[in-house]
Design a protein around this nucleic acid. Structure first.
Lengths: 342, 342
DNA sequence: TTAAAAAATGTGTACGTTAACACGTTTTAC
DNA sequence: GTAAAACGTGTTAACGTACACATTTTTTAA
């Protein structure tokens, strides 16, 4: 039975007290060269790793973590994200952390700023948020850095320096969509790329997907891609006109609002190859009725929970945080969708 | 700042000592009705959760865990599984657990038995293994149950009672493959389903995939599915004869040996729609050169690490173990494969 | 009523790590 | 040459929980 080595074993082996070993471990100085050497030798020999459990025990501060999410009441895409956060809160319920979640209106950059800055009054250890708005996120990030708060973001990649980011390679997801589309449509074909978004908020986000999509087809013959950008409210007329004019065979929707396209197509009595994003309830229905061919799953729940876990594990256990972790791009069709719903 | 409640807070609130609270928490009896009541009230009021960290600290036994895997030298499919185990070992390196990994020959049920039973000489707390062989796994499982050892399995579902299982819904994965195939091949079409397997070992395994595949096409018109079962060694001739005779448009391979089919097809100068399993290096190459249309990813690494983590977390932190957890069925094409390789 | 037995409760120590503190030794400053 | 500062080192009391053991209270029996 392998013995577990403790700081005491190291101290014995090095012929010093645990106090000295501890000072070496934490670079707290006040150690003679001789002691330092023998301690380091012992550490290496036993491949000693401090017990993280005993370590946190001593640390009796309660870490304060704030999470700022887009309100899922405004956009159901954020519902899984909320759930992910709640699961982590439950899981870490017994630890010395105080996580609180706050919501902003994803269609209103002012609400993001108001609520975000509103949270900075008290002492905070870590801040996790979705940087939907670029400029506003910069402002917030500056302030967070100023106050020396650990920062994490997910879903939207933000150029600035955050301590942790979880997300997808959106460009690549565009290529994936393109490949699926090319599989389904014989050349020559015309394909519509549709951005459905009220705000210019998601612009960067959606533009990345478009770049990937177009880049794929640039390498192919006889495919034409045309872009349509419309607001989410009352886009039906515009879309109808668009679809009548252009003889498109497939539609790639860069947001989770694909189901709206499906509905509009049904109203017009048309059938197209539709590819879009995210496992919203309505999208799943359309997938199962074969009105959507593929969905790309952005795993918002996983993104949120990994983000929060990353911050917590860093604070609590001193685990390293991965500056940028990219999740796999998951392809969903009518048959495997169920396996994502457990 | 929210205070973290400890057993001491509960004791104070209930007007008893921490010893009494502890007895209540562990149902160790020797508590008066009155005390029981007031403690339970306090527990509820504060929503008290014992600090799992302080708890394990006290428990100074080293848990012994054995992992028994098919040898990745014999079948590269098991390489990621090995890696997953190693990562978990690294992650939990500082804890009081002693994990050792052992390997059996996936083509030899005797080696499974020999090595498996050979491990049972000393005291063991948990045993994680891949139950490739049904009868032999039953034997081992009986013995494990006898000795009151925590059991976990992954990858192959085994009817018997294990404490934890991680895997895929193989039937559903067959359906997914079928759907992808149907998308790619216009009816009427003939599709070959190929089992490449030396042993009858994987029979149940592969049969499930076949069931799902066939069931999907039963619901469709004008598709015919024919099955070919061949050994892994020297199947080229048989396969060549088969492919000449039958006018198949697509080939679904139920194992990770798809790349062999691709090679054989190339040698024959033929092109088919090929769908198979697993991200072996050679399969990935074939995917990227468009010789394989789709792969289904069984996430062996994740399966292994989730399995081991489940056992460890149960032993160490008393976390519940999920009797049966099914991973999502992941569809891989030439574009998203890279996102799985980080 | 009282002694003994049983039941209920409290106390103390340990787990591994941390960090404040105390102590002894050496160096520095005047 | 002496006082003060600097340095190296060991000791000890926490952190929250668990459990053996000691102590107190209640019940039972004579």
């Amino acid at each position: 039975m392998r013995k577990k080595y403790t700081i005491k074993d190291i101290a014995n082996a090095a012929g010093v007290s645990i106090g000295t070993v501890d000072r070496v471990l934490h670079n707290r100085g006040k150690v003679s060269k001789k002691a330092l050497l023998s301690v380091n030798n012992a550490l290496k020999e036993f491949n000693y790793k401090p017990n993280p459990i005993a370590r946190t025990l001593k640390n009796n501060t309660v870490y304060i973590i704030k999470v700022l999410l887009p309100d899922s009441a405004k956009d159901p895409f954020w519902l899984p994200g909320k759930e992910g956060i709640e699961e982590v809160m439950e899981e870490y319920g017994a630890f010395d952390i105080d996580i609180s979640v706050h919501y902003y209106n994803p269609a209103d950059s002012k609400s993001f700023l108001d609520i975000g800055f509103g949270l900075l009054g008290q002492h905070i250890d870590a801040f996790l948020f979705v940087p939907l708005f670029e400029k506003e996120s910069d402002l917030l990030l500056d302030e967070l850095k100023n106050k020396d708060i650990l920062t994490g973001t997910f879903n939207s990649f933000h150029g600035g320096t955050v301590d942790l980011y979880v997300g997808l390679d959106l460009f690549m997801s565009g290529r994936v969509a393109a490949k699926l589309m090319a599989d389904a449509l014989k050349a020559p074909s015309k394909i519509a790329l549709v951005h459905i978004d009220e705000e210019s908020t998601n612009a960067v986000h959606l533009r990345e997907k478009e770049r990937g999509f177009r880049q794929f087809f640039k390498e192919m013959q006889d495919y034409e891609v045309i872009t349509l950008a419309i607001g989410a409210s009352g886009f039906e007329q515009k879309f109808a006109a668009f679809i009548e004019d252009e003889g498109v065979g497939g539609i790639f929707v860069t947001t989770s609002k694909v189901y709206r396209i499906v509905k509009a197509l049904k109203a017009l009595g048309k059938t197209k190859v539709v590819v879009g994003y995210d496992l919203l309830e309505e999208n799943i229905k359309a997938l199962q009725s074969n009105d959507i061919k593929f969905l790309i799953h952005q795993s918002p729940k996983l993104q949120a929970s990994l983000g929060l876990k990353g911050l917590v594990d860093n604070l609590l256990l001193g685990k390293e945080l991965s500056k940028k972790s990219l999740l796999p791009i998951q392809i969903i069709n009518s048959e495997n969708v169920e396996s994502y719903l457990y």
